[in-house]
């Protein structure tokens, strides 16, 4: 019995000296709180596909986006499945602070100009002062720059304007999954058809599934809460992938909305998935640190 005792004591000694450094680490963990940290990279870019994500360019960062939407995939081999008919959007967004950005853009479609502001109101956080959601506000004014023939309806500047206001409510559910709910309000000063609504409300849902550190699959859908008139437009539905390479993000997607500004893809998506009126497109973004 005495021998067993000694043996036990010896065992304990060996155990404690080997485990001591690990014990210090456990002790350290017990007395240090994890700091409260903001959740970053809920989405890879400032857009999910068409719609805004909760991300804004960082302070002093110029975020430049070139986006294309090609013709319908159903247009066949002669038009190389739409690749011959490109619509372009060129945009510059600048981060005034980490949570406030302003931007301008120009679209081929209806020669539309945009001015926008994006502000982070709430930020998802982890740690002792955790917060479950990010809420980002986005407002954009759009101006149709197309010329009209003198004999057509008078088309003064105010009629060319439309506005969209959105709240992007996003949550990074896990490293893999991020979700966003995006209620949108659209106002058009001028509508094409009489009886068409000037104001529209939509509820969008978007998300991403990050399959690899630099690759994710994204999707978004915008449900009409109020109808324009009848059922002239089918709701906007887009699916795509994000590929990240250093300072660039490539977003490749298929969508039934050809326009890349909010009024167009929310209120007036050009095609329908059921009819196969789908457009292939991409957003290519690049960030420049202007001020560090």
């Amino acid at each position: 019995m005495k021998r067993l005792n000694r043996w036990l004591v010896g065992l304990v000694w060996i155990g404690t000296s080997a485990m001591h450094a690990q014990g210090l680490l456990d002790e350290l963990n017990a007395v240090t709180e994890a700091p409260t940290l903001p959740v970053r990279a809920t989405f890879k870019d400032t857009r999910i596909v068409n719609v805004q994500s909760n991300e804004t360019p960082a302070e002093g960062v110029l975020h430049f986006v070139i986006a294309h939407r090609f013709g319908t995939l159903s247009s066949g081999a002669y038009d190389l499945w739409g690749l011959d008919n490109a619509q372009m959007r060129m945009a510059f967004d600048y981060g005034i602070t980490d949570g406030l950005a302003v931007g301008v853009a120009r679209n081929t479609y209806q020669k539309t100009y945009e001015a926008n502001v994006k502000a982070r109101l709430l930020r998802q956080k982890t740690g002792p002062e955790a917060f479950p959601l990010s809420v980002t506000w986005y407002s954009v004014a759009m101006a149709n720059g197309s010329r009209v023939a003198p004999e057509e309806t008078p088309y003064p500047f105010t009629r060319r304007l439309s506005y969209v206001h959105q709240a992007v409510v996003a949550r990074k559910m896990s490293e893999r999954w991020s979700l966003a709910l995006v209620p949108s309000f659209v106002h058009r000063n001028f509508v094409q058809e009489s009886g068409e609504a000037h104001d529209l409300a939509l509820l969008g849902v978007g998300g991403r599934c990050k399959l690899a550190p630099r690759f994710s699959v994204n999707g978004e859908y915008h449900h009409f809460l109020t109808q324009s008139f009848g059922d002239a437009f089918s709701p906007s539905l887009s699916l795509g992938v994000d590929i990240e390479t250093g300072g660039h993000v490539f977003q490749l997607h298929i969508t039934n909305a050809r326009g890349m500004f909010e009024r167009s893809f929310l209120a007036e998506p050009a095609g329908s998935w059921a009819n196969g009126d789908l457009y292939f497109g991409f957003n290519l973004s690049r960030v420049f640190t202007v001020k560090s």
């Binding site: 450094a21 960082a58 960062v61």
Partner: peptide, 22 residues
Amino acid sequence: TGEFAFQVQMRAFHFEKALMEE
């Protein structure tokens, strides 16, 4: 004993450029 344990939170590293941090 001179034994020690140190730890850092990776997310608390700050870089010059936001994209580097991301």
